[in-house]
Amino acid sequence: MKSNMNDLLSEGPKVINIGLRSFYEASETQGIKVVHIDWKPPAQGDIETIKLLDRLL
């Protein structure tokens, strides 16, 4: 997979939406390809654990 900034402008956005569901819905309304990630805070939202996990992985 290869997408640089100029491909984005010439092909138009094909979106992975991470966060607000309302943005997924707005993208879908405009007829573009979009998938939604059902995002939740990782490691129960604990920043120190997240940092530790990132170092380990």
Partner: peptide, 10 residues
């Protein structure tokens, strides 16, 4: 969506 070219992060 393997052709995805943008992540919209909120």
């Amino acid at each position: 969506l393997p052709e995805a070219n943008l992540a919209l992060i909120s």
